[in-house]
């Protein structure tokens, strides 16, 4: 058991040091290229322009379009979920299965404005700076 613990401790430090070094040397580098980014849970979803944008890296310029609440409301299910937060519109379909609070939390805001829910974590507090950086990769436009 002691040996197994030692192996895991060493592995832990190797990964942590590698990540920290990579961040120092290649701060904007990623491990997965854009084609391998978070995949949709339902591959059959069809949302042409948004899909292209949703998989864009935050470090690359993105052509943002103005999107109305009416248009957002059409994308109201797990397999095709848009929502607006703080004036920006996100296609968070690929994020299903990854939210620490579970899918149900996000599902109910599909097709709606989720600014309040996002800011207050449904009354639980604030999202971290990390969560905010994560959100950027799902940005597809600005609220009209």
């Amino acid at each position: 058991m002691k040996k197994t613990v030692l192996v895991i401790v060493i592995l832990f430090f190797i990964i942590v040091v590698t990540v920290l070094l990579a961040a120092l040397l290649l701060p904007s580098g990623t491990l997965l290229n854009s084609n391998q980014k978070p995949l949709a849970t339902n591959d059959s979803r069809v949302s042409s322009s948004s899909e292209t944008n949703a998989t864009n890296n935050i470090n690359q310029p993105v052509m943002l379009k103005n999107i109305s609440l009416v248009e957002i409301s059409k994308h109201n299910k797990i397999s095709d979920c848009w929502m607006s937060m703080e004036g920006s519109v996100y296609d968070i379909t690929p994020f299903f299965g990854m939210h620490p609070g579970g899918n149900q939390i996000m599902e109910k805001y599909c097709g709606q404005d989720a600014t309040r829910a996002y800011q207050t974590q449904d009354g639980h507090g604030n999202h971290s700076a990390y969560a905010q950086s994560l959100l950027k990769i799902y940005l597809i436009g600005l609220l009209k």
Binding site: P27, L31, S128, I137
Partner: peptide, 21 residues
């Protein structure tokens, strides 16, 4: 950390360290 892989190594490092939350 897997969550941060599509963002950047910087995001991964930030995830591992304290950030005021």
């Amino acid at each position: 950390i897997a969550r941060t892989l599509p963002i950047s190594f910087f995001a991964a490092a930030k995830f591992l360290l304290p950030e005021g939350a």
